[in-house]
Amino acid sequence: MEPETYVVLRAPPLPYYLGAGVSAYAEGEQHPNRKNLGFFDLLWVVRGELHIGENGRDWALGEGQTLLLLPDGEHYAVKPCDRETVFYWVHFSYSGEKEVRHAPLDRFQQPFEQPFSNPYEIRLPYRAGPGGASEGPKLLRELVRLRDGNRTAAFWKEQALLLELLRLLEEGEHESRSTPAIRIAEQAEAYLKANYQAELTNGKLAEALHFHPNYIVRCMKERFDRTPMDYLHEYRLEQAKLLLVTTDWSIAQIAERVGFRHVPYFSACFKRQAGVSPLKYRRRYRS
């Protein structure tokens, strides 16, 4: 069985909306052949069936199904439509790092060293559906409506609608492939983030989630490639970086605030992860 394919966009930056439209093909018509467009082309079929291929892979897209054509790909008609077919298309550009990746996707992303980076991997299914049956076409219709309006009034709405559309695709795919183990791991992640300042153990986490600690550890390693305590340790250090830059608190205050009870141990852990002491890290960002 062919593995699922995803397009991973590392944010920042965010995708930028270029344009949208709707195409209707009568029986016997087909999608044009194109290559190296330089932007992503998202297709969303609402009626009929579209026969299209890209870079040697062919699909028959039915109602509610989507395909994300690549900026540097070569896409072409596999065969003409055998009945009336209607689909929306959305063009958007992206100037950051991107890659095509195969499942499984669910692994923890290493934190960035910069304290304000707030990184995120946008994980879009190459082909998906049916999904977002009611919300997706509604967003697409609004994008098409805005196309002929005042540019200044439409700009922010268009960008927001694009991101909402991509959110639908990402979350819909995640929910369809989520397993009990992944859901438990994500519950554990949320609990650790909400309570990272407290003294936490695998036992306390297990009590809060009502699962055996060994099971939670297995789930976290499957989802994040880390044990709960390893995840907690790294998250505490990331919060410490933020406080070093945004406050004048002492190293001891910051260590206690993020859950470390002993300053020398905090400093040793911080240097091992960041490569410099907490004080030297702070000086990077001070004039």
Rank of each mutant, 00 (worst) to 15 (best):
104 P>H: 02
104 P>S: 00
104 P>C: 00
105 L>P: 06
105 L>T: 06
105 L>W: 10
105 L>C: 05
105 L>N: 04
105 L>G: 01
105 L>I: 07
106 D>V: 14
107 R>Y: 10
107 R>P: 07
108 F>T: 08
108 F>I: 10
108 F>V: 11
108 F>L: 11
108 F>R: 14
109 Q>E: 13
109 Q>I: 12
109 Q>Y: 14
109 Q>T: 15
109 Q>S: 09
110 Q>P: 15
110 Q>E: 12
110 Q>L: 13
110 Q>T: 15
111 P>N: 03
111 P>C: 05
112 F>N: 14
112 F>Q: 15
112 F>W: 13
112 F>P: 13
113 E>L: 14
113 E>W: 15
114 Q>E: 13
114 Q>A: 10
114 Q>L: 11
115 P>W: 04
115 P>E: 00
115 P>R: 06
116 F>G: 10
116 F>H: 09
116 F>L: 08
117 S>N: 12
117 S>K: 11
117 S>E: 14
117 S>H: 15
117 S>C: 10
117 S>R: 15
118 N>T: 14
118 N>Y: 14
118 N>H: 15
118 N>Q: 13
118 N>W: 14
118 N>F: 14
119 P>W: 07
119 P>T: 08
119 P>C: 05
120 Y>I: 11
121 E>M: 11
121 E>D: 13
121 E>S: 10
122 I>D: 02
122 I>E: 04
122 I>C: 06
122 I>V: 12
122 I>H: 08
122 I>A: 05
123 R>Y: 06
123 R>W: 08
123 R>E: 04
123 R>H: 06
123 R>P: 03
123 R>A: 02
123 R>M: 05
124 L>C: 05
125 P>L: 03
125 P>Y: 07
125 P>V: 03
125 P>D: 03
125 P>W: 07
125 P>H: 04
125 P>S: 02
125 P>R: 04
126 Y>M: 03
126 Y>V: 05
126 Y>D: 01
127 R>H: 09
127 R>W: 10
128 A>G: 02
128 A>Q: 11
128 A>W: 15
129 G>D: 03
129 G>N: 07
129 G>H: 10
129 G>Y: 09
129 G>T: 09
130 P>A: 07
131 G>F: 13
131 G>E: 09
132 G>Y: 12
132 G>D: 07
132 G>K: 09
132 G>F: 11
133 A>C: 08
133 A>V: 15
133 A>S: 12
133 A>W: 11
133 A>T: 15
133 A>Y: 13
134 S>L: 10
134 S>V: 13
134 S>H: 11
134 S>W: 13
134 S>C: 08
135 E>C: 09
135 E>T: 13
135 E>F: 14
135 E>H: 12
136 G>E: 07
136 G>N: 06
136 G>F: 11
136 G>W: 09
136 G>S: 07
136 G>P: 06
137 P>M: 00
137 P>Q: 03
137 P>T: 04
137 P>W: 03
137 P>L: 02
137 P>I: 06
137 P>Y: 06
138 K>W: 08
139 L>R: 08
139 L>E: 03
139 L>A: 01
140 L>K: 02
140 L>A: 01
140 L>D: 02
141 R>W: 02
141 R>D: 00
141 R>L: 05
141 R>P: 01
141 R>T: 03
141 R>Q: 01
142 E>C: 00
142 E>G: 01
142 E>M: 04
142 E>W: 06
142 E>V: 04
143 L>F: 02
143 L>R: 00
143 L>M: 04
144 V>L: 02
144 V>H: 00
144 V>T: 01
145 R>E: 01
145 R>Q: 00
145 R>A: 03
